[in-house]
């Protein structure tokens, strides 16, 4: 699934590892989500939504 995670992370000047620490997942998990190789669970998507203060559908795009 496409997403804006990499852009949001860059806007907040966070490394993959730092974002992973804030979400309590590994750096590899963040990398896999950013590159579309892994779709996060609903609880993790909600965590991302709350962290960036954006609706889930503004972070993830399931239209393609």
């Amino acid at each position: 699934m496409k997403n804006k995670l990499k852009i949001l992370r860059a806007m907040h000047n966070l490394s993959q590892a730092e974002l992973g620490d804030r979400l309590d997942v590994s750096r590899q998990a963040i990398n896999a989500i950013e590159t579309g190789k892994y779709d996060p669970s609903l609880p993790l998507a909600f965590k991302l939504s709350r962290l960036f203060n954006l609706p889930i559908e503004e972070i993830f795009d399931d239209s393609l």
């Binding site: 309590d24 997942v25 590994s26 590899q28 998990a29 896999a32 989500i33 892994y38 996060p40 669970s41 993790l44």
Partner: peptide, 10 residues
């Protein structure tokens, strides 16, 4: 198993 994250669980 009780402490891996969801990506590693997969």
């Amino acid at each position: 198993q009780r402490n891996i994250d969801e990506h590693e669980k997969q």
